[in-house]
Amino acid sequence: MSDLLVLAASALGVLAMVGAAMALGFRTRARLTESELARIAAEEGRTLQEALIAADARSAFARLADGAVLVARALGDGVSARIAPASGVRVTLEKGRLRVALADIGYPPLELRLQQAPPAWAAAMVQGGGA
């Protein structure tokens, strides 16, 4: 019983601290830009060739000059990006949403809502004939 009380109190403590963080304005959200993607690629010694940025600028899928791809998502006020060989991602397209999945469960699939058809290089990667 005392364990349950401690856990309940801890859960309340968590909610209080998250509430305090929100109340203090720690709610900044990053937005992705092509220059930010180019910087991330350059940090890894790569060159950005073409980028597809979601309408909300919270996720992006890009092709690099060496044929690899870059996936990026805004995570809070930061960015989390992965570079993978083109064969290392699974790309599907459904109802105007491009879905890019990696094998790692630590990086959930990106979903990019597109306002127009994906560019040819991205469409060529779509599996299952969705493009």
């Binding site: 856990l7 801890s10 859960a11 968590v14 998250v18 963080a21 720690f26 709610r27 930061g78």
Partner: peptide, 18 residues
């Protein structure tokens, strides 16, 4: 630097640890 979503995930990890 703080960001509430990051803090929330850290704190829930601590809760899960308990």
């Amino acid at each position: 630097r703080y960001q509430f979503a990051d803090s929330a995930s850290s704190l829930w990890m601590g809760f899960g640890n308990q």
